[in-house]
Design a binder for these strands. Structure first.
Lengths: 337, 337
DNA sequence: AAGGGGATTGAGAGCGCTCTCAAAACGCAC
DNA sequence: GTGCGTTTTGAGAGCGCTCTCAATCCCCTT
C-alpha cells in the first residue's frame, strides 16, 4: 500500500506515486508531448488511482488565466430576465460555446445599479478572462471602464454611441424593412408600428427599418412606443387603434409586444390577419403559440450567444477580431400576416 | 513620486507605499480590527491610490475557499431553459441572494449528458464552495457523487428516492388539492388533469394532489400526461376531450401546458370557463396574458432561488441546515376558473 | 569507442495571499 | 522607573502549480 497523505492529492502526491518529478506530472496533465510514452502511462495511472484533479486556483495564480468568462446582464435586462426568452436564449448559446471550449461561465446578474462596482471589481481582480455584455442601454459607462482595464469585452448589440469595443448584432433594420415591404406588397395601406425603447439600438434600428420601408411610399409613419413587454404592446396597440382606427397592419418590434398587441386587437374586435396584419420580431417560442400564430422576423438568438462567446475567447487568446459581426435576420411567415 | 512597480499592484506594493508589512495590509483589506486607526487609514489610502484589488486565485489557494457557488442545470432542464420562465426565475433568485452575500454564481448548463463528468471535475477541483442543483430527473446519480466529494449541495425539488441531501420544494400536492377542491366546490362534475412527467417529483406530486382531492368524491380520475411544454399541453387536452367529451374542468400541472390546453379547447369550440374551467400551476408571466387569463397555483419561484442560495451558503459556512424546506403555494384566481 | 545533438527529466524559483508565531510597542499599576 | 499584560506589527512559511534552465539520457555518426 502506498502511504497516501491525507486530503486532496496534489501534483506532489502523484509525482511520488509515479516515481517522477512534479514537473513531469504537470507535463502529462497538461498534455505536453515531451514525455516518454512509458512514463506518461505511469503518471496517468497514478492520476487515475489517486483521483487527482488540478487545483485551478494554484494554476491561475501562475498562468494569470482563470478560464472563466463573465456574462453580464445589466439591471434593466435582469428585470425581464425570466419573462423573456431572449436573454436566456443568448445565455444558453454562450454556455454551449464555452462548454465546448472548456471554459466556465460566471453569471453576473446586476440586480441593482450599484452592481457596477462589483462587476468592475471582479474584472479588475482578474477573476475572469473576458466579459460578454448583454443589452446595453444608452451610454453605459461599463464597457469603457472594462476596456480600460484591458479585459476582452464583447457586447451583444451595437452600442449607441461610437463603438469602442467589438459587438455582435443582427441586421435589425434590414429584417424590419423586409417585413414591412412584405406588408406593402400584400396591399396593406395603413401600416403602423409599435417600436421598442428609443434608448436601445434594437429599438432605434427597428424603427428606422420601418421608416425606411415606408419612405418610398405615400404612407405616413404611425408610431407608438413600447418597452418590449407584453403590457406595453397591449397599451400601444390600443393607442394606435384609437389614433388611426383604419390601420390594416402593424409591425411590432418584439414578439412579446406583438402578443400583447394581438390581445388588444382581439379585444377591439379586429380580426388578424383579415382586418389587421401583424408581424413581430424575435421568433421566440411564443410566436408559434399566439392565436393566430405570429409572422415574425427571426433573429438567431442562440447563435448570437455562441458568437459572443467565440469572439471573446478569440480576443482573450490574443487574436484580433472583427469590430462588429452582424447576423442576418429572416422573415418567418405564419398566420398573422 | 513613488516608484510603483509596473503591472497590477500586489499586497507588497501597497505595503511598501503605506510603509507597513504585507500582513498589516492584509488585515486592513480583510477588515480585521487589530489595526491602529492611523495605520488603517494610511493603508486604505495606499489601496485607493494604487487601485489595489486582491487576487482571488492567490487568496483561494490559501483559504481553500473560492466564494463561488455553482448553479447546475441538467441536460433536460437546459433544453427548456429559454422557453420556460421557471428556471430563469429560480436562477434570478439565486443570483440575487448570492450577490447580497458577495459570492459569485457559476452557471453550469449541461448541454450534453456527458457534462456530468465536467461538473464533477469542477467540484472536485474545488472550483466551487457549493452547488445548487436544479431540476433532478429520476434517480440522478449526480447529487450522490457530489455529496461524496464533500461539497455542500442543495437541490431544487425533492428527489425521487430517499433524500440524502437537503432540498427546497413547494407544497405541490397541497396546492393542487386546494385548486381541485375549488373546482369541486364550484360544482364541476367531471374534472380531468394534465399531469407532468412522471419521473419528476413535480409531476408526480401534482398528480397525487389531484387524486387526493378527488378521493373523497364520486369522480373518477381522468389523466393525460404531458412534459410541461405547451405542445404537450395541447396534445394532452385534445386527447382528454376525445376520451371524455363531457369534462367540465381540467387541472393542468404547469402554466405553459395550460396555455396549450386553452388553445386546444378554443380550437375544439369549448368556452373557458363556461364549458370547461382550467387551472394551471406556476403563475409565470404568461398566466396573466392567456385568454382568458389563467387561474393558477402560484409557487414562489424567485423565493425558491433565494432559499436555495441561502441554504447552500449556510451549509458551506459549516452550519447545519434543515434537510428540507417546503414553501407554500397559493391559488390565484383569474378568469379561467 | 568517442563525441555530438536532440529528447527527457528534475530542481527550484516564484505567482500573491493568509496566518501563525514571536517580537515590539504600549498602557498602566506599583 | 520597572514589570506585566495587552495590543499591534512583522517575518516567514507555505497553499499547489507552472515554467525556465540545466542536467541527464539516448541514439547516431564518425
Amino acid at each position: 500500500m502506498q502511504d497516501t497523505p491525507p486530503g486532496r492529492p496534489t501534483l506532489e502526491t502523484v509525482a511520488r506515486l509515479a516515481g517522477v518529478s512534479r514537473a513531469t506530472v504537470s507535463r502529462v496533465v497538461n498534455g505536453s508531448t515531451a514525455v516518454k510514452p512509458g512514463v506518461r502511462e505511469a503518471v496517468a495511472r497514478a492520476v487515475r488511482e489517486l483521483g487527482y484533479v488540478p487545483n485551478p486556483a494554484a494554476r491561475s495564480l501562475v498562468t494569470q488565466r482563470t478560464d472563466v468568462v463573465a456574462f453580464v446582464l445589466p439591471e434593466p435586462a435582469t428585470r425581464v430576465f425570466s419573462d423573456d426568452a431572449f436573454f436566456p436564449g443568448v445565455l444558453r448559446g454562450v454556455g454551449e460555446e464555452l462548454e465546448a471550449a472548456d471554459k466556465q461561465l460566471l453569471l453576473l446578474l446586476a440586480s441593482a445599479p450599484s452592481s457596477h462596482e462589483r462587476i468592475l471589481r471582479y474584472v479588475h481582480g482578474r477573476t475572469v478572462d473576458g466579459v460578454v455584455l448583454a443589452s446595453l442601454h444608452g451610454a453605459d459607462p461599463l464597457p469603457a471602464s472594462l476596456e480600460a482595464l484591458g479585459v476582452p469585452v464583447v457586447a451583444s448589440g451595437r452600442p449607441l454611441g461610437p463603438a469602442t469595443f467589438p459587438y455582435i448584432d443582427v441586421d435589425h433594420a434590414g429584417g424590419v424593412e423586409a417585413a414591412v415591404r412584405y406588408l406593402l406588397q400584400r396591399g396593406r395601406a395603413r401600416i403602423a408600428t409599435i417600436a421598442g425603447p428609443q434608448d436601445m439600438v434594437a429599438g432605434i434600428d427597428r424603427l428606422a427599418g420601418y421608416r425606411a420601408a415606408l419612405a418610398g411610399t405615400d404612407q405616413e409613419p404611425l408610431v407608438a412606443v413600447g418597452d418590449f413587454t407584453r403590457e406595453s404592446g397591449m397599451v400601444a396597440m390600443r393607442r394606435l387603434l384609437q389614433e388611426e382606427p383604419g390601420l390594416d397592419a402593424v409591425f411590432v418590434a418584439s414578439d412579446l409586444m406583438a402578443d400583447g398587441a394581438l390581445r388588444a386587437l382581439r379585444q377591439a374586435g379586429r380580426r388578424v390577419p383579415d382586418d389587421v396584419a401583424v408581424i413581430g420580431f424575435d421568433d421566440v417560442e411564443i410566436a408559434r403559440f399566439t392565436e393566430p400564430t405570429l409572422t415574425t422576423v427571426r433573429q438567431p438568438i442562440a447563435e448570437i450567444g455562441r458568437r459572443l462567446a467565440r469572439q471573446v475567447l478569440r480576443r482573450a487568446a490574443g487574436e484580433d477580431i472583427e469590430p462588429a459581426l452582424v447576423l442576418p435576420t429572416e422573415l418567418v411567415l405564419r398566420e398573422s400576416a
